[in-house]
């Protein structure tokens, strides 16, 4: 389970995340929705242990920067960046060694096969196209079979087959009991499988809905998203909002 409690992150004077709290339970797919600059990627990086923050983040009850938490966390970053001088297969081997995995070869073969990378095993990182790099990044993130998985804009740069396969894998991981958090600004890409949605604006969670809520009330998540973002824009232009929104690129 992923627990985020009162997480605040500042870059100098700019407030990127402001007291964010939510939970993602085992077997739940939670999405972080928000326009550019809403603070989604900053929050994902805080959860992944890459940034300092105030507040509390627990991965299956362990403080997110502890080694135990890292063992149970998978992170697929927004920008794939493989080691230039490691082949695809050596990336798998490196992950296996870093996470002390046993009997990993079959799993690695299977993952690479699903993403049509099995014929690229001997390709160096610097020989891969951007889409291939993204696929490799996903394989690296999933190989340790993490219990909590963070995806930061995972569909960007993937071909249709890979998108279909990734969606299948996400659902499989959900069925296996993993807590999954997906950050995206493309609602269409996650529309079919989200369980809970957190809409972020200006570093805060402006609304949280479960699929059950929206199903029973008939509320349209897309309409809610636009209502929140448009109202935030008009507040900003009226000068009613006290704080500045996060700069572009912070995410």
């Amino acid at each position: 389970m992923l627990l985020v409690q009162e997480v605040t992150k500042k870059y100098g004077k700019v407030l990127a995340n402001d007291g964010v709290s939510f939970e993602t339970h085992p077997g739940e797919i939670s999405i972080l929705l928000g326009p550019n600059g809403a603070g989604k990627s900053t929050l994902i990086k805080c959860i992944a242990g890459l940034l300092k923050f105030s507040g509390r983040i627990l991965i299956n009850g362990n403080e997110n920067k502890s080694l135990q938490a890292k063992r149970e966390l998978g992170y697929i970053p927004e920008i794939p960046a493989p080691y230039e001088m490691l082949t695809v297969w050596e990336h798998m081997e490196f992950i296996a060694r870093a996470y002390s995995l046993e009997n990993w070869k079959e799993k690695a073969e299977h993952l690479l096969q699903r993403f049509e990378m099995d014929d690229k095993k001997k390709k160096l990182g610097n020989e891969l196209s951007k889409g291939m790099q993204q696929k490799l990044s996903i394989c690296c993130g999933l190989l340790p079979e993490p219990k909590v998985i963070l995806f930061d804009e995972p569909m960007v740069g993937l071909d249709p087959h890979a998108i279909k396969e990734l969606k299948k894998i996400i659902l499989e991981k959900k069925d296996e009991g993993a807590a999954i958090l997906i950050s995206t600004h493309m609602l269409d890409s996650v529309d079919e499988f989200w369980d809970s949605a957190n809409i972020m604006i200006g570093g805060r969670i402006a609304a949280r809905r479960s699929r059950r809520d929206t199903a029973s009330s008939g509320e349209d998540l897309e309409a809610l998203f636009f209502a929140i973002t448009e109202s935030s824009k008009s507040k900003s232009s009226d000068g009613q909002e006290g704080k500045d929104s996060s700069p572009e690129g912070m995410n």
């Binding site: 890459l50 890292k70 063992r71 970053p77 920008i79 080691y83 490196f94 996470y99 002390s100």
Partner: peptide, 15 residues
């Protein structure tokens, strides 16, 4: 460090 270190090493369970 470089970017692959950030994406793969920093999140790994290594001290």
């Amino acid at each position: 460090f470089n970017m692959p270190d950030v994406g793969l090493l920093f999140v790994a369970p290594i001290s």
